[in-house]
Design a protein around this nucleic acid. Sequence first.
DNA 1: CCATAATCGGACAATAAATATCCGAAATAG
DNA 2: CTATTTCGGATATTTATTGTCCGATTATGG
Lengths: 165, 165
Amino acid sequence: MQISKGVEWAAHAAVLLSALPTGRGLKAEALARYHSVPGPYMAKQMQALSKAGIVQTARGKHGGYRLARPAGEITLWDIMTAIEGSKSAFTCTEIRQNGPCGATPEQCRKKCAIAAAFHAAEVAFRESLQAISLVEIAAGVAADSPRKHLRNVGAWLEKEAVAIG
Amino acid sequence: MQISKGVEWAAHAAVLLSALPTGRGLKAEALARYHSVPGPYMAKQMQALSKAGIVQTARGKHGGYRLARPAGEITLWDIMTAIEGSKSAFTCTEIRQNGPCGATPEQCRKKCAIAAAFHAAEVAFRESLQAISLVEIAAGVAADSPRKHLRNVGAWLEKEAVAIG
DNA sequence: CCATAATCGGACAATAAATATCCGAAATAG
DNA sequence: CTATTTCGGATATTTATTGTCCGATTATGG
């Protein structure tokens, strides 16, 4: 069980976008440069966020990405499913139906007990992530950073931000 | 995020072993045959359970696997970590330290807020799986199966089981 | 209105991990 | 002691992730 690295990058990028005022955004290259990650691969993650409706895009000169809705309505679960897809982590292959004592399909109307247990665990995981929005993350980051650092970030954003609407 | 197929197989195998009386077990080939899964790969999963101390082994003629402790003391989390390893699913690569506004290491004494949120979700996932032992799984399976099927399983086990001590 | 420049979007390799398999080491039974 | 049968670790094949490139699209400026 391994969460893709793209999820981490997309989450950081989304938090950065949440620091911008409404209607302003950043281009993919700037988002990659901010964290010193490979540009094209960062762009790939942003495309996934775009397809999921988490960010809005503008093409052409002065193009870029901005959040599609308020930061409080974007959770870490939204970002993770946008990157990794929404299929469940545990896939039951119904091996209980195989072999010399295989259960018949009508005996399997109820979900396999093992699959049900993993499903319940995944629900707990999902609900935990759904409780955290970009607002909470941004507040945590701000609380842990010195004023000087936040001013640097603000100046950098002011220099790089573009209007998207 | 994908849970390995080996986890499913190992869990089913462990549940099957839990149906045997203390001191009796099954050889790897029988465990594979019961669910019609590839023998050598099933054996690989059993080796992982053995290294994790979940099952005891006996080699030579009349060898095989038996549970190393009572079924109530073996949780699905134990099985999953035995197969997949115990490293966390989300790995923080500290990209906040990179780039033009990178945070200095001493600003990073607290864990990154994003990593902390994923860590909390993983804790919820883990605690959910730790609450389910082989006893609960076996009880669920028994409740969902007709008597006739359970008799078939019992007869098959009686035929295949070996004494391991 | 048209050419231009700069952006996003989807298609294309390289790498790492999971899946499946084989052969040697070890231990018991006779 | 010998032979048989088993587990254990090392070895290929397939799949998913990571990383990269070039074409489609759009606002800009003349």
